[in-house]
Design a protein around this nucleic acid. Structure first.
Lengths: 120, 120
DNA sequence: AGAAATACCTTGTATTGCAATATATGTTTA
DNA sequence: TAAACATATATTGCAATACAAGGTATTTCT
């Protein structure tokens, strides 16, 4: 049981959320994720994921010149990608609810996690 | 991206939490998880997981007669299992914080659980 | 005896995070 | 000029794990 395993299938949604917020390029995403609290991600994780998401038409990419270094491939969400992000957020909310139900021994009928505000 | 993928590495912790709460047998766990809000789980998921956790000495098992059907293998947490559960709960808390940070575009500086200092 | 429900286990497959490695571009420094 | 370094993308192979499919054994009910 490791953090790596717990991330499976969740990282996609995180990337979609970041890309929706602002056009980003792959190499940038590791730092971006770190700023959100994650440990930095391997490029061997991020690039294959981006290529897969592009193949699935969730994102599009455009090459742009960099101020320093080779060209960057910037990613944007497609309409399909936005839809996928919405579904991810719903599934993520359900997962949080259910796991917290288990951990704190509550029944699954009450406690809706959907519409609460995030407190700091 | 599916719910299946999002469960990877999380189901172990859920089973540990359920077993800690009350001695249970494998076949019972599918229903148990459903009562907590999950869709029911395949036995092909649960049994290998229980065997693995026993091999790792996180749980112990004892066979008991059933009122109807073959004997049931009841599982209990070991001390090591309780420790593992605690670590899971911490990792799960961190994961929730970080993913919610990403989804709602907050910075990761105010960690809810970790209290760990982030270097660099 | 036969059928159905209960209960456990094994095998093979698909998915995915990641280390290791490769390749290419631009800047800085000796 | 060349060497060194940082930036940036991509590929390969491995490990972990949820799960469908299939199998075995026990008890109860007709």
């Amino acid at each position: 049981m490791s953090t790596t395993q717990m991330l499976k299938g969740i990282l996609d949604g995180c990337l979609l959320a970041i890309i929706k917020n602002k056009e980003v390029y792959g190499y940038e995403l590791a730092d971006k994720l770190e700023s959100y609290g994650f440990h930095s991600f391997s490029e061997g994780t991020i690039y294959p994921l981006l290529l897969r998401m592009q193949k699935e038409e969730l994102v599009t990419s455009t090459l742009k010149k960099s101020t320093a270094g080779p060209r960057r491939k910037y990613y944007s969400l497609t309409a399909k990608g936005e839809k996928e992000l919405e579904m991810f957020i719903k599934r993520w909310g359900d997962l949080q609810t259910n796991v917290n139900n288990v951990v704190y021994h509550e029944s699954g009928t009450n406690l809706r996690k959907g519409d609460e505000t995030i407190e700091k």
